[in-house]
Amino acid sequence: MRPAEVHRVTVAQAVDRYIDMVRAKTATGALSPGTAEVYTRDVHTFARLAGGERVLDDLSGEDVDDVLLRFALKPDGRRGGRPPGGEEAGARQSGASQARFRRSVSAFFRYATVSGWVQLDPMAATTVVPRQRGGLRPERRALTREQAEGLLGTAQSLASAVPDGRRRADQRTELRDALIVLLLATVGPRVSELTRADLDHFYVNAGVRYWRIFGKGGATRDVPLPREVARVLDAYLAERRARTVETGALLLSWRGRRLARGDVQAVIDRVLARVDPQHRRGVTPHGLRHTMATHLLAAATDMDAVRRVLGHADLSTLGRYRDDLPGELEAAMRAHPLLGAPAESPDPG
Rank of each mutant, 00 (worst) to 15 (best):
D121T: 04
T294I: 09
L152F: 02
L310W: 11
V245P: 01
R322K: 13
L184Q: 03
A238K: 11
F46W: 03
V105Y: 00
A260L: 10
A197R: 01
A24I: 02
H290P: 08
L296H: 08
G340M: 06
Y321T: 03
Q13D: 15
V187F: 06
T220W: 03
V43Q: 01
A305N: 05
R100Q: 14
T154Y: 11
V191W: 00
G34F: 09
A206H: 08
A343G: 14
A332P: 04
V128Y: 13
G153C: 06
E344Q: 12
E53H: 08
I268Y: 01
G80I: 00
V271R: 06
W117P: 03
K74C: 02
R137V: 02
R8S: 15
Y321L: 10
V162D: 04
L158E: 06
A341K: 14
A107D: 11
A125C: 03
L59D: 00
A155K: 12
G207T: 04
S253V: 14
Q98M: 12
A14Q: 04
V67P: 00
T40C: 04
L136Q: 03
M123W: 03
A335I: 01
P348Q: 10
A242P: 01
H201M: 09
H312F: 12
G287A: 08
D200L: 11
A230N: 05
P130S: 09
F202Q: 00
A185V: 13
R172T: 09
R176P: 05
A142T: 02
T284V: 07
A107H: 12
A293Q: 09
P346T: 10
T301G: 03
A91R: 04
L329R: 14
T173Y: 06
H290F: 14
D76Y: 00
D170C: 10
L250T: 06
E344I: 04
G81E: 00
G51Y: 04
D66Q: 13
L339F: 12
Y321M: 11
L69V: 15
V232S: 01
L182H: 08
E246M: 04
Q278H: 09
R289L: 13
G188F: 07
V55H: 14
P189V: 11
P122I: 09
A4Y: 04
T247F: 07
P348A: 13
R168T: 15
P84K: 10
G34S: 15
L233K: 02
L59F: 01
E174A: 14
L175P: 08
R240H: 10
G217V: 13
T26S: 11
K25E: 15
V181Y: 04
A14V: 03
V187Q: 10
T28C: 07
W117K: 06
R221I: 07
V114N: 05
R8D: 15
R54W: 00
A142P: 06
F101A: 02
S115V: 00
G327I: 05
A27H: 06
L315G: 09
G256E: 02
G85S: 05
R281W: 08
A30V: 05
A235P: 07
L339I: 08
S106A: 15
T301V: 15
R255F: 08
A178D: 10
E62F: 05
A161Y: 05
T35P: 02
G340R: 08
R334C: 12
A332K: 11
A238S: 12
T28S: 15
A125D: 15
